[in-house]
Amino acid sequence: MNAKSTGSPSGAQVDRVHAHHLLHQMLRIRRFEEKSAELYTLMKIRGFLHLCIGEEAVAVGLCEALEPEDGVVATYREHGNALARGISASAIMAEMYGKQEGCSRGRGGSMHIFDNKTRFYGGNAIVGCGLPLAVGLALADKMQGRKRVTCCFFGDGAVAEGEFHESMNLAALWQLPVLFVCENNLYAMGTALERAQSATDLVRKAASYNVASSAVDGMDVLSVEAAAKEAVTFARREHKPYFLECRTYRFRAHSMFDPELYRSKAEVEKWKQRGPIVTLVKQLKKQGLLNDVELEQLEQQVAREIEEAVAFAENGTWEPVEDLTRFVYSERG
């Protein structure tokens, strides 16, 4: 199999407009997540809240490679994927507030972001349970002769689940265009990869199912984007699955209830030096593709968007309690 690495912070050529777009997308996610954490401490957002700060390049790089008609299946740490995919910050924020203007009417919350316009199938909070869904979505596409790709995000923790292995096998066996994206942030909640896996090379695991696979530096958005485009092109052209491991790192706690006893502050700091946003900013400045004024303009644009999202959520309404039992079964007619 063509297991290979496209790692290393890329010196790839990128034009100014596109570079700014990528940076903008990552900043949207970063500031949105920071605001979410703040709103959590203010008790505006409740339940579990899993932030993807540090992992923005994965969501952005992948979503850049997808076409509008492609499908996305994500995990419970999915705000970034949802924003990058094109779900509005307002709809996501309102969802986390539990308001009926939220993308899932406040029925889902942080872990269950859904959107049919962008074919975003959750927001799945059982580790591994989204992989078989992605297989099925791709199977439906194959049966109906559509050229769509289904992109399935999951973490390194999911690799220990049976559903990962069943899905790799099914997708390869049936030759389905699923892009399996492992957001490997080295920890399944608090359990380090080497404490959970007898063999830690995830690319080899996927390759053992005859799934074309590679790994990429998930902290470098240009590398992720390049690898994602290659993977999506492969899946669409060959009608076969592809496994892309994005090596990344979560800067924040697993959720808001995590004292982080399982890793050192020094380790987190070391990764932060390689953060996807600082890395890109540094690279663009060095190449003369970004200056401080432009950066500030991007930040202000993002700040306005998030301010609007919070206002939208604040002004949202509660679904009437009389509607409690709706959406258990479809409403006909």
Binding site: G71, Y121, C129, L131, P132, L133, A134, V135, G136, L137, A138, L139, A140, D141, M143, Q144, T150, G162, E163, E166, S167, N169, L170, L173
Partner: peptide, 28 residues
């Protein structure tokens, strides 16, 4: 074989695939 699909012994996998296919417009 496109409509009578044998599966491996992967109950979770193929049931989930059925759900995904239903979401994708099929009637499995």
């Amino acid at each position: 074989p496109e409509r009578i699909v044998d599966t491996p012994l992967s109950e979770s996998g193929f049931t989930g695939a059925g759900i995904g296919a239903a979401l994708g417009g099929m009637r499995p």
